[in-house]
Write a protein that binds this DNA or RNA. Structure first.
Lengths: 258, 258
DNA sequence: CCCGAGTCGAGAGCACTGCTCTCTGTTTGC
DNA sequence: GCAAACAGAGAGCAGTGCTCTCGACTCGGG
């Protein structure tokens, strides 16, 4: 943008600038982890040995810095979720489902302040920019993808119970157009139930609304709840017939990078 | 405390003081509703025609004021939930279940800032005091109570699917001691799944993580999701045989006081 | 009745915040 | 080589939570 031609010769200054931006974000992320949600731009600047107004050469406002951190946090969470999926054998559908779930939980517990940025109360005047909607859906996609793979393999149990009422069916059908023919509206509704259940559970745990003497073994509790959701989604209990039925699909800590 | 004897003769000054406390809380609640989460004590004082230091005669800190508002918000939410339960016939178990759910959603959408105080990111240094744990459980109790009533009436379907693993069974059994013999651990686990599902859904909607073109008719979507949870909990679909099977158990806006 | 004690409000002040503006020195592209 | 763009420092503004002091007021007991 400010450099017309191709990406030739990053012109030392531009490279320094890019490094500076990364350094600011790194320090801000560190502050977020230690101090908590109310990020102080002045404190970040102080840690970098510069004065607060200098930071405004790189970010137009504190909210812009937060937005950058939010986007990168969505990426990191999405990466963790997909890594949790990839850690299981492709036909171990329930193992993949639990892999995604436990990866999301592990990342969230390891980065509570960033999780609060993503799924806590939105900051006062700040409105989530459009760049955040796509990465925000990666976790939901990861869960639904397991259901889709199960459906195309003919291993997704047909849902019983309450059918989807017409108005909801319209909304869900619109979502299903992106992945045509794979799932029914009933099945997608169950996948989205698992999705909101996942973040409800993680929010309770990260925000400390659960650990007050209610549940001791919170990981086992979480694992059981997500298995209930796997049942609800219609995922089969055992891996496919073409794979070794080893000790897969155990909770553990599937993925927790950094 | 500062008045030794009984509660005789509130001594004008004490009455004025109590009124002042209520007035401060009322203005603070109004500010919370209009401005958002970051409550400014000085702005509240300004609205009351007093200077900020005067407010400290009534509340030792801003967090103390917030704590008061949090406790009262829990009470209001609990009242709404129980009113939503009471609006349905006692033996219309699914109607009561949905009544509680829709009442919680309606209150939360009507009081987003207070909801964020309860279920959003916890404020920086602030740790939820012990006065908040009991009122925070009222909603969960309201849901579980419907299941208990269904169980004693022999109308709660036995759960199938994944059994509760031993470590979780220990935690749940400890919770069940307060209501002995009514539910199995499997059933309580499903009730708590519905509980976290409820707040996961409401959080998504209140915090604007859902309405971005994903779901249009969010009330119908919520209703369907909570019916899925009623299925999961094992609640019967129809009211009991001793009641008229009229047009009950419809969504609507069961309770939304104030 | 009156007077010390406790209460209340106002004001000034401290340390902090996000952000703007101006000024100086450096780097860049032509 | 030079004008333009950029980077950092510093001062400053308006706002925040909170503390302290000081005068006015009210209350309860003698």
């Amino acid at each position: 943008m400010w450099q017309g031609g191709g990406m030739s010769a990053p012109s030392i200054r531009a490279r320094i600038r890019a490094e500076m931006i990364e350094e600011i974000k790194a320090v801000a992320r560190r502050h977020l982890a230690t101090e908590g949600g109310n990020l102080s731009l002045r404190a970040v600047a102080r840690d970098l040995g510069m004065v607060s107004s200098a930071v405004y050469r790189y970010f137009p406002s504190r909210d812009a810095l937060l937005t950058e951190l939010i986007i990168e946090a969505y990426q990191a969470l999405g990466d963790a979720a997909e890594a949790g999926d990839a850690a299981a054998a492709r036909d171990d559908l329930r193992g993949r489902w639990l892999g995604v779930s436990h990866a999301v939980r592990a990342w969230s517990l390891a980065h509570p302040a960033e999780y609060a940025l993503l799924y806590g109360s939105p900051v006062p005047g700040y409105a989530a920019p459009s760049e955040t909607v796509v990465p925000a859906q990666r976790v939901a996609f990861a869960l639904v993808q397991v259901m889709i793979d199960a459906a195309v393999a003919g291993r997704l149990a047909p849902p019983d119970g309450t059918p989807v009422p017409p108005p909801v069916r319209v909304d869900l059908a619109r979502l299903l157009e992106q992945r045509p023919g794979a799932l029914t509206e009933e099945q997608l509704a169950r996948g989205m139930a698992a999705w909101s259940q996942l973040f409800g559970l993680v929010s309770f745990e990260v925000f400390g609304r659960l650990a007050q003497g209610v549940v001791e073994d919170s990981e086992a509790y979480f694992d059981h709840q997500m298995r209930l959701m796997a049942d609800l989604a219609g995922l089969p209990a055992e891996p496919g017939p073409s794979s070794d039925p080893g000790p897969a699909a155990r909770p553990g800590q599937p993925a927790s990078e950094e």
